[in-house]
């Protein structure tokens, strides 16, 4: 097993100590930090796969996110030192929709997406439709993520998608909705492109979109 494979394996096994230890070793050995971060993208994708298969649960995502965050923090100074920047796989504007101030799910999504290599613009909680629209104009993201926990969010998601349509921006972005209360019906109602109950699955869907677009 290569170092890279072992590294990814330790993340997938949620072995915090080992994953950080390998990352440290790799940096000390002078390996390109971008390679390490690239492994995180692979790991994030695999985590999503595991979630889809029912092997991973939210608790696993939280732990995996925590580990990947730790690794990113470890790598960042080295990256800076070398004057390098991580290549962004895609741009995501994300927020908990208007009326909802819950952020557990959204925060997991942010961590996972960042670990996977996305540039994430986090609009926070209780985000009104116009703020999503503004952010799309300003940041030109590939993807818009909308999160909600309570059912208030259903209406807000629809309103946000409508606002994006009205601003003529709908074709420029893919829209994914996530959170404890969303499902296929909610997706249809809101007019989104995908839905997920988990950040990892969401990241996987987003990575797929990016790949499809590249083709």
């Amino acid at each position: 097993m290569s170092v890279s494979e072992e590294f990814i394996k330790s993340i997938l096994e949620l072995d915090e100590r080992k994953a950080l230890e390998i990352a440290r070793r790799r940096l000390e050995a002078g390996e390109d930090p971008l390679k390490i971060l690239g492994d995180l993208t692979i790991a994030a994708d695999k985590i999503g796969e595991k979630y889809e298969k029912g092997e991973f649960f939210i608790a696993d995502l939280v732990m995996a996110g925590e580990i990947m965050k730790g690794i990113s923090e470890l790598v960042r100074p080295k990256l800076k030192e070398l004057g390098k920047v991580r290549e962004v796989v895609g741009k995501l504007v994300i927020g908990t929709v208007q009326g909802d101030i819950h952020d557990i799910g959204k925060n997991i999504a942010v961590t996972m997406a960042e670990a996977a290599g996305f540039e994430v613009i986090d609009l926070g909680v209780d985000v009104p439709p116009e703020k999503f629209v503004e952010a799309i104009k300003q940041y030109n993201p590939n993807i818009v993520g909308m999160s909600c926990l309570i059912t208030v969010g259903l209406e807000s998601m629809k309103k946000t998608v409508d606002a994006i349509k009205e601003a003529g921006l709908r074709d420029r972005v893919k829209i994914i909705i996530g959170g404890g209360r969303v499902d296929e019906y909610a997706k249809e109602y809101a007019g989104a492109d995908a839905w997920t109950n988990s950040a990892a699955e969401g990241v996987r869907i987003m990575l797929k979109w990016i790949r499809e677009k590249a083709r």
Binding site: T151, L154, R181, V182, D183, Y185, E188, Y189
Partner: peptide, 9 residues
């Protein structure tokens, strides 16, 4: 019964 079915069905 899914809530969203009630909401949007």
């Amino acid at each position: 019964i899914p809530v969203s079915l009630l909401h949007s069905g």
